[in-house]
């Protein structure tokens, strides 16, 4: 598997550490309540198709990356820096 890093270009999967769905960018406020926090921490859409998830270019440039991938085919459709995705305020 090869993954695109927005900074370094396409690299072998070995350089990256995976860390779950990109909803992790949408951290609720401290007072959001137990349902919101349960959803944020545990519940997932978990699509069998296109998803957005987080990867850390740990053995590269240390960028956290939001990959748009297809979980059924492993096709990679896009990659963006997590910091930019967060600033843009959208992960959907």
């Amino acid at each position: 598997m090869r993954l695109p890093c927005p900074i370094c270009g396409e690299r072998d999967r070995r350089e990256f550490t995976y860390s779950g769905a990109a909803v992790a960018l949408e951290r609720p406020g401290a007072e959001a309540g137990s349902e919101a926090w349960d959803d944020y921490l545990h519940n997932r859409d978990n699509p069998a198709g296109v998803t957005r998830d987080l990867w850390y270019h740990e053995q590269g440039c240390a960028a956290w990356i939001v990959m748009t991938r297809n979980t059924a085919t492993h096709e990679v459709l896009g990659a963006a820096l997590a910091s930019e995705a967060r600033r843009a305020g959208s992960t959907s």
Partner: peptide, 14 residues
């Protein structure tokens, strides 16, 4: 280290 980078880049890039 991974966690701190995550918090910075993905939660608090501000």
């Amino acid at each position: 280290m991974r966690h701190l980078e995550f918090v910075h880049q993905a939660l608090r890039p501000d």
